[in-house]
């Protein structure tokens, strides 16, 4: 029961999806629509809440055990609870009863998002620009002809993608475009085909009940 019921559900629902295009009868269509528009949306919402619960528990544990950097877990928990109260009781744009404005100063959850999450998120990702520069200096060595090929292709594409490449010679963007459309397309297509066929094989194993690792240990 503990293994079989979920497995049967997965196989039934999976085959419903598989046969969707071949069964244009209103009954399976309605069922499919219900699954998609109601069931999946609600389930995915609960999955997120479970994730949040795990995050909170983990950081509370960190504080209790005084693990590395535990004071920062307070930052996470306090910011999470304060912003959650603002978002849940103030509404997404401050339309509910919880006050999210003092004079001209707005602090509803959308403003917090715009003013805090954008700078934090964008800065975090942009750090990579600096580390790439450092890696370019320290690690990219033209040790053999394949590495030379890689670097050559990278140089042409880097130049071809910016206006200065066009300024040096209009041929550079053309060559860069050719690299993208011919050798790059061939390599990426080969890799993509391999990955997709692998994914499909795994999906079919899941659907036929051969692959069951998703059931976990049950503990």
């Amino acid at each position: 029961m503990k293994d079989k019921l979920p497995l049967i559900l997965l196989i039934v629902v999976g085959f419903m999806g598989l046969t969707d295009r071949f069964l244009p009868h209103p009954a399976p269509e309605h069922l499919n629509q219900y699954m998609r528009d109601t069931l999946l949306r609600i389930i995915s919402a609960f999955a997120l809440i479970l994730g949040l619960g795990n995050l909170i528990l983990r950081h509370m544990n960190r504080i209790r055990k005084k693990s590395t950097d535990w004071p920062h877990s307070y930052t996470l928990l306090i910011s999470f609870f304060v912003a959650s109260v603002i978002g849940l009781f103030g509404g997404v744009a401050g339309e509910l009863w919880f006050p999210t404005r003092v004079g001209t100063f707005d602090f509803n959850i959308t403003t917090i998002y715009n003013q805090m999450l954008i700078p934090l998120g964008a800065s975090m990702f942009s750090l990579l620009a600096f580390y790439m520069a450092s890696a370019a200096y320290r690690s990219f060595r033209a040790r053999n002809w394949l590495a030379i090929l890689l670097l050559g292709s990278a140089f042409i594409v880097m130049l071809g993608q910016v206006p200065i490449g066009y300024r040096i010679s209009p041929a550079i963007p053309e060559i860069s475009q050719w690299i993208m459309e011919v050798p790059n397309t061939a390599a990426k297509r080969g890799i993509e085909l391999g990955i997709t066929l692998g994914v499909l094989a795994t999906f079919l194993k899941i659907l036929s009940g051969i692959e069951r690792s998703w059931l976990g240990s049950g503990r």
Binding site: A136, Y137, R141, M158, L159
Partner: peptide
């Protein structure tokens, strides 16, 4: 970045 790669090499 290209200068860095060349200089590094």
């Amino acid at each position: 970045i290209m200068v860095f790669v060349i200089l590094g090499n």
